[in-house]
């Protein structure tokens, strides 16, 4: 026990000294203004891409290739987790909550879905985007599991459908990229590839950015949902039977 405590102290000291060496390397510039590409992005996003959300423009246009990769990381994780749990069957692990909650949820679902879609579709004009909207979509399916019981969602939406949505989202992303390549403007080119810019701030602006947001939303929403439903496969049967119907 004493030795363990000692080791912890040594470990802490080591990490702190590593941190100290790194701390010394920090550069804090006295001048708070942006420099390099960041300054360019702030100044020219609107004219370059037609999107009013600079973050979305950087994510989906200037550095769209990174986002392609990031979305693929999620895709990889989902596929891998599904693979790890592929041999198990989804069993009933819960019966859901009381009828009042079920009814209440039923009323809220359309609103949540609209909210999620708006986050996805308006990613280029407001804060939000495919990742966030997709996560909200996935939340709906998680709520289904909590409120209606673990078997509910699978009986409405087959896992294969989610698989298809996820993969087609990824393919849509790649297709938009290849369209740019085919137009001769480079992979993931936006306005240069013939996507129309539209008036800044309107829904149909930003060229391919909304399209890419939708692709990422499909990928993330279906993916996170698959992830959740793969992982609850390890839950055991509930001990009690179904709650009494009212």
């Amino acid at each position: 026990m004493r030795a363990q405590v000692f080791h912890r102290w040594i470990g802490a000291a080591l990490c702190l000294s590593l941190g100290w060496w790194m701390w010394r390397g920090l550069i804090v510039s006295a001048d708070p203004s942006l420099f390099g590409p960041a300054a360019y992005y702030v100044a020219n996003t609107a004219s370059d891409t037609g999107a009013s959300n600079i973050v979305a423009a950087i994510l989906f246009d200037y550095r769209g290739f990174d986002t392609f990769g990031e979305a693929t990381v999620i895709y990889t994780t989902v596929c891998g987790v599904a693979m790890l749990f592929a041999k198990r069957r989804l069993r009933r692990s819960s019966w859901g909550l009381s009828p009042i909650v079920k009814r209440g949820m039923g009323m809220m679902v359309p609103f949540i879905l609209v909210y999620a879609s708006s986050i996805v579709i308006m990613g280029h004009i407001t804060p939000g985007g495919g990742f966030q909207g997709g996560a909200v979509f996935a939340t709906v399916t998680v709520l289904f599991c909590v409120i209606y019981g673990s078997k509910f969602e699978a009986s409405r939406i087959s896992p294969k459908v989610k698989e298809v949505i996820e993969s087609s989202g990824a393919l849509l992303f790649a297709a938009v990229g290849l369209w740019g390549l085919a137009e001769g403007a480079g992979f993931l080119a936006n306005l240069d590839a013939g996507f129309s810019s539209g008036p800044i701030g309107s829904l149909f602006s930003g060229g391919a950015i909304p399209l890419l947001n939708i692709a990422v939303g499909m990928k993330v929403g279906a993916g996170l949902s698959t992830l959740f439903y793969s992982m609850i496969k390890i839950l055991e049967d509930p001990a009690e039977g179904p709650p009494p119907e009212v």
Binding site: G64, F65, F187, A189
Partner: peptide, 9 residues
């Protein structure tokens, strides 16, 4: 990518 200059893209 995307037809930008190397600095931006």
């Amino acid at each position: 990518m995307g037809g930008w200059t190397p600095e931006l893209g």
